[in-house]
Design a protein around this nucleic acid. Structure first.
Lengths: 346, 346
DNA sequence: TTGTAAGCGTTATCAC
DNA sequence: GTGATAACGCTTACAA
C-alpha cells in the first residue's frame, strides 16, 4: 500500500502499512498514536514497534482534514525587522514548538488592509488560533474570528475596557509615565516623533500618554509638535531635523520607539548639538540598540519575550479547552539612561 | 451541505455548496479555481459569482491532501533574535506572501540536534520546500530531503564545492578580506571571539578566513587566540575581558559577528581603553547596531535581504517546475568604520 | 467544455 | 479493547 509521491519521491508509509505490519486495524494504529491510554499494553507495543520500523509519520494534511485542526498557530505582525517583534515572535514560537505546534507567519507591514488579507489567508490555511498585534482593526474581522470560533490573542497592548483576550502593557500609561519624567525635568516645549497614529493604536495611545502628562502639568496638549513618519532610523533623523528647524524648537523630543529615537539622536549629534545638554531625546521599547547608542537612550522597557510566551500559553489553553487566562497587563518600566536631563535654562 | 464546524462555529461552505449554487459539478468549481483557462467564460463567471456570494474559501487541508502540496514553505533558522536572520526571514516571507505561499517557522537555537528535529517536523507538517541556514548537518538529513524530493536551499553560505543549491557569500573569503585589512594595519597579535565552530560552519569558515590571512602574511595561525562563546553582547564583553587579561594581549580583536563585537567594544570602553587607539575591534554582519555603536564598528556587510529574497525565488522556481537558479554568491563587502586603526606602536 | 467518481490518509462512529 | 467503515473537502483521471 506504499505510495510513491507524485514527484517520484520515495514511498512513504501510511497507517494502512503500519496496521498491516502490526496485524491490527488502522483504527487501532490511530488510537495508539492519539490516545495510547485506551489500547492494551501489548498492542501498543506492537504498533509502536511497527511505526518505528517503518519510519511512519502521520500525514498532517490528512490528519488536519479528518480532525479539523492543523496544530498550526498563526501570527500576523507588522514586521520582523523590528527587533521587538522579532524577539516576541521568537519567544512565541519557542513556546509553540515546545507544545508540538507550528508557527505560521505573515506580516502586515503596519497596514491594516494587508493585515486583514493575512488574517483571512492564515485562517483559510487552517490556522487553529492567531496572534495579533494591537487592537486596531475593523470590527468585521473580530466578528469573523468569533463566528469561526478561532481563538486569538491581542498582544503588545492592554486595555481592560476592550473585550478581547490580550497581553501587553498600557501604552498610554507607560508613555505618560515617561512624559511625566520629562516634564518633571523642567521641559515645557515638547515635540514628538511618532508612527502613523491613524492605523496604529499603540502609536496613538503613546501620543495620548504624552498629552495626558502635559495636561496634568498644566501645559497645553495642543502645543505638542508631532511628526508622524515610518519606523526607520533615517525617518527619525529627518523628523528631528525638521523639529529643531522650527521657530521655537523643542527642548525634549519624545519618540514613539527606539529606532526613531536613535535616528533623532544621530541627527542631533550630526548637527553638533549636545545630548542631553541641548536637547533631551527619549525612545520606547528598550531594544539592545538603546543601551548601546552613542548616548545611552532613556526609554521604556517593554516585556517582549514575556508577551510572546504568554500569548502562546493563552492560545494553547484556549485550544486545549482549558479556560484561557484573563487578559494580562505586564509592566512596562521606565528605563532612565543618559539622553534625558533637565531642560536648558531660558 | 453546509457544515457547522465541530466547535460550534458558523457553517462554512464547501465546493459542493458552490457547485449546487452555480448549477455545475464540483469538478468544474475546482477547475474554475485552479485552472480558469480551461473552463468556458460563462461557467467561470457563474461559478465565481457563487463563490463570492457564499464567501467560499477552499479548505487547505483537503486541498493539500488531494493535491499533495501544501503551499507552505518552511524555514529553520538559528533564532529570530539575531537581526540578520530576522531581516532575511522577513524578506523571504514577503516574497512567499507575494506568491501565495505561507511561511512556516521553526528555530534550532544553533543546535544541530534541534535542527534535525525541526527539519523532520516541518516536512511532516507538509512543508513543500525548506530554507536552511548554513551547510553543516548530518548527511542523512540531506539524503532524507533528496529522497523525499523536497527542494531546499542553503542560505547564509556559499561554497561552490558543495552540491547543494545555495545562496550566500563566502564566509571564509569575506573574513579573510577583513583580516587582511587588519593585518595591513600592522596588527601582529590577533585574537578572535567566535561562536561555537563545531556545529556552525559559518563561524568555522570565518575563523579559517582569519587563519588564511595570517598565513599569507607570514604570521603563525596557531598564535591566534580564540574564544568560543554564544552570540550575545554579554558574552562578547566577557570574552574581551578574558583576552586582554592575557600576558600578551592582542592589539586587534576580530569578532564573529557584530553582537559579539559590540559586547567587546563595551568591555573595552568600560575598562578605560581607547578604541581604536589601544585596541582595534571588528564585527561581522553590519546590523544597524554596528553603525550606531559608541565607536562605529568596522565590519562586513552581509546582504541579508537579498539572500532571503533569492532563497524564496529559488524555491518557488523549484516547486514550479522551472529550473531553479544555480547557487549564487552574493557579495559581502568590507565596511570600514572607526574601530579599526593602525596597531599601537611597540 | 463538463460531469462522474475514485482517491488522498487520517479520524471517529459504531458495532462487536 | 478492537475492527469496519463512513466521513473530511478537495483534485484529477477518465468518460462523455
Amino acid at each position: 500500500m506504499d505510495k510513491t509521491d507524485k514527484t517520484g519521491g520515495v514511498p512513504v508509509p501510511t497507517v494502512a502499512d503500519v496496521a498491516a505490519a502490526a496485524g491490527v486495524s488502522t483504527a487501532t494504529v490511530s488510537r495508539c498514536l492519539n490516545s495510547p491510554g485506551v489500547v492494551s499494553e501489548k498492542t501498543l507495543k506492537k504498533v509502536l514497534e511497527a511505526v518505528d520500523r517503518l519510519g511512519y509519520a502521520p500525514n498532517f494534511s490528512a490528519r488536519a482534514l479528518a480532525s479539523n485542526r492543523t496544530n498550526m498557530i498563526g501570527a500576523i505582525i507588522p514586521t520582523m525587522e523590528n527587533a521587538i517583534f522579532a524577539r516576541g515572535l521568537q519567544a512565541f514560537q519557542e513556546e509553540l514548538q515546545k507544545n508540538g505546534r507550528t508557527l505560521l507567519v505573515a506580516s502586515s507591514s503596519y497596514r491594516s488592509d494587508l493585515e486583514e488579507e493575512q488574517i483571512r489567508a492564515l485562517t483559510a490555511r487552517g490556522a487553529d488560533a492567531l496572534l495579533l498585534i494591537g487592537y486596531h482593526r475593523d470590527s468585521r474581522l473580530y466578528e469573523f474570528l468569533e463566528k469561526r470560533r478561532i481563538p486569538y490573542v491581542v498582544a503588545w497592548a492592554y486595555d481592560p475596557a476592550k473585550p478581547h483576550l490580550s497581553v501587553g502593557f498600557n501604552n498610554r500609561a507607560a508613555m505618560r509615565q515617561l512624559a511625566d519624567e520629562v516634564i518633571g525635568k523642567g521641559h515645557r516645549k515638547l515635540a514628538c516623533i511618532s508612527a502613523d497614529t491613524a492605523e496604529n493604536d499603540r502609536a496613538r495611545e503613546r501620543v495620548n500618554g504624552i498629552r495626558d502628562a502635559m495636561e496634568a502639568a498644566g501645559l497645553d496638549p495642543a502645543s505638542l509638535d508631532i511628526i508622524e513618519t515610518s519606523y526607520a532610523i533615517d525617518a527619525g533623523d529627518a523628523a528631528f531635523r525638521a523639529l529643531v528647524g522650527a521657530k521655537t524648537p523643542p527642548t525634549a523630543v519624545i519618540c514613539g520607539n527606539d529606532v526613531l529615537a536613535v535616528g533623532a539622536l544621530r541627527a542631533a549629534l550630526a548637527l553638533g548639538m549636545n545630548v542631553p545638554e541641548d536637547v533631551s531625546i527619549t525612545g520606547f521599547d528598550n531594544i539592545e540598540l538603546a543601551g548601546l547608542a552613542p548616548v545611552p537612550l532613556t526609554t521604556v522597557h517593554v516585556p517582549h519575550r514575556r508577551m510572546g510566551q504568554f500569548a502562546a500559553q493563552a492560545l494553547l489553553a484556549a485550544l486545549g479547552g482549558t479556560p484561557p487566562p484573563h487578559s494580562t497587563e505586564l509592566p512596562a518600566e521606565l528605563c532612565l539612561r543618559a539622553t534625558l536631563a533637565r531642560a536648558p535654562a531660558g
